[in-house]
Amino acid sequence: EEWMVEKALMVRTGLGARQIESYRQGAWIEGVHFKRVSPSGESTLRGTTWYNYPEINKFIR
């Protein structure tokens, strides 16, 4: 699984929702560690946020 939603990321990493938000707003790079995608497939600020687990795992190492 490369891309996953927040709940799956929480299960895989043990991070809480606030921790994920903090990383997203600070250290993680949009387009690398996470992306927002609307149902139409376009990038957007209001779409579902998807997280790239392999890239996040590399960051944590």
Score class of each variant (00 low, 15 high):
residue 58 K to H: 07
residue 2 E to Y: 08
residue 16 G to T: 15
residue 53 Y to I: 05
residue 31 G to L: 04
residue 26 G to I: 08
residue 53 Y to A: 04
residue 3 W to L: 01
residue 38 S to R: 08
residue 42 E to R: 07
residue 9 L to W: 02
residue 53 Y to G: 04
residue 60 I to R: 03
residue 58 K to D: 08
residue 20 I to K: 00
residue 53 Y to C: 03
residue 54 P to N: 11
residue 7 K to I: 09
residue 61 R to A: 13
residue 30 E to G: 03
residue 42 E to V: 09
residue 32 V to P: 02
residue 22 S to T: 11
residue 57 N to E: 15
residue 41 G to A: 09
residue 9 L to N: 01
residue 15 L to T: 01
residue 48 T to M: 10
residue 52 N to M: 02
residue 57 N to K: 14
residue 48 T to F: 07
residue 25 Q to Y: 07
residue 18 R to K: 14
residue 49 T to W: 15
residue 56 I to Q: 00
residue 29 I to G: 02
residue 42 E to W: 04
residue 58 K to F: 07
residue 27 A to F: 11
residue 59 F to N: 03
residue 7 K to F: 09
residue 30 E to L: 06
residue 15 L to K: 01
residue 3 W to G: 01
residue 20 I to D: 01
residue 41 G to Y: 07
residue 46 R to N: 15
residue 16 G to I: 09
residue 20 I to V: 06
residue 22 S to K: 13
residue 57 N to W: 13
residue 16 G to L: 13
residue 15 L to C: 05
residue 20 I to Q: 00
residue 3 W to Y: 02
residue 24 R to Q: 09
residue 44 T to M: 11
residue 3 W to H: 00
residue 1 E to G: 10
residue 19 Q to I: 06
residue 45 L to G: 14
residue 24 R to D: 02
residue 59 F to G: 03
residue 17 A to G: 06
residue 55 E to H: 04
residue 33 H to I: 01
residue 40 S to Q: 11
residue 44 T to C: 09
residue 8 A to T: 12
residue 21 E to M: 08
residue 29 I to H: 05
residue 31 G to N: 07
residue 37 V to D: 12
residue 52 N to W: 03
residue 23 Y to E: 02
residue 5 V to M: 15
residue 61 R to I: 14
residue 56 I to N: 01
residue 39 P to Y: 10
residue 6 E to G: 06
residue 20 I to H: 01
residue 46 R to G: 15
residue 40 S to Y: 09
residue 19 Q to T: 06
residue 35 K to G: 03
residue 24 R to T: 13
residue 7 K to V: 09
residue 54 P to K: 09
residue 40 S to P: 14
residue 4 M to D: 01
residue 35 K to S: 07
residue 23 Y to K: 02
residue 13 T to S: 05
residue 41 G to N: 09
residue 18 R to L: 12
residue 22 S to D: 12
residue 54 P to C: 11
residue 6 E to N: 03
residue 10 M to Q: 07
residue 9 L to V: 04
residue 31 G to F: 05
residue 7 K to L: 10
residue 3 W to Q: 01
residue 11 V to H: 12
residue 9 L to G: 00
residue 22 S to E: 15
residue 21 E to I: 07
residue 18 R to E: 14
residue 58 K to M: 06
residue 17 A to N: 06
residue 24 R to A: 07
residue 4 M to W: 03
residue 32 V to T: 06
residue 50 W to L: 15
residue 61 R to D: 10
residue 6 E to F: 08
residue 4 M to G: 02
residue 49 T to R: 04
residue 40 S to A: 11
residue 59 F to M: 07
residue 20 I to A: 01
residue 5 V to C: 12
residue 37 V to L: 09
residue 14 G to F: 03
residue 58 K to L: 08
residue 18 R to G: 12
residue 4 M to C: 06
residue 20 I to R: 01
residue 23 Y to C: 08
residue 35 K to H: 04
residue 57 N to H: 12
residue 26 G to T: 14
residue 24 R to F: 05
residue 60 I to P: 03
residue 15 L to I: 04
residue 27 A to H: 10
residue 34 F to H: 03
residue 1 E to P: 09
residue 54 P to T: 15
residue 12 R to K: 12
residue 50 W to V: 13
residue 55 E to Y: 03
residue 61 R to M: 15
residue 49 T to V: 15
residue 34 F to R: 01
residue 47 G to P: 13
residue 49 T to N: 06
residue 47 G to A: 13
residue 15 L to D: 00
residue 12 R to Q: 08
residue 52 N to C: 05
residue 41 G to D: 11
residue 36 R to E: 14
residue 7 K to H: 12
residue 43 S to E: 12
residue 26 G to S: 14
residue 21 E to S: 07
residue 51 Y to M: 00
residue 1 E to M: 08
residue 59 F to L: 07
residue 32 V to S: 03
residue 16 G to V: 09
residue 27 A to D: 09
residue 1 E to I: 08
residue 50 W to M: 13
residue 1 E to L: 07
residue 42 E to K: 08
residue 39 P to E: 14
residue 26 G to K: 10
residue 14 G to T: 03
residue 33 H to D: 02
residue 54 P to A: 11
residue 37 V to Y: 08
residue 47 G to R: 07
residue 29 I to V: 11
residue 60 I to C: 07
residue 57 N to Y: 13
residue 55 E to W: 03
residue 34 F to S: 01
residue 22 S to R: 12
residue 43 S to L: 09
residue 47 G to E: 14
residue 6 E to W: 06
residue 38 S to V: 14
residue 46 R to H: 14
residue 32 V to K: 08
residue 47 G to M: 11
residue 21 E to L: 08
residue 45 L to R: 08
residue 37 V to P: 06
residue 44 T to N: 13
residue 3 W to N: 00
residue 45 L to F: 07
residue 50 W to Y: 13
residue 27 A to Q: 11
residue 38 S to Q: 12
residue 3 W to E: 00
residue 33 H to A: 00
residue 51 Y to W: 03
residue 37 V to I: 12
residue 20 I to C: 02
residue 2 E to M: 08
residue 26 G to L: 10
residue 22 S to Y: 14
residue 19 Q to E: 14
residue 22 S to V: 13
residue 58 K to C: 06
residue 34 F to N: 01
residue 32 V to C: 05
residue 56 I to S: 00
residue 2 E to K: 07
residue 41 G to P: 10
residue 22 S to F: 15
residue 44 T to Q: 11
residue 4 M to K: 01
residue 59 F to R: 03
residue 61 R to T: 13
residue 37 V to E: 13
residue 25 Q to S: 10
residue 57 N to G: 06
residue 9 L to P: 00
residue 6 E to C: 11
residue 61 R to Q: 15
residue 24 R to G: 03
residue 58 K to I: 08
residue 56 I to K: 00
residue 34 F to K: 02
residue 10 M to D: 02
residue 57 N to F: 13
residue 46 R to M: 15
residue 55 E to G: 02
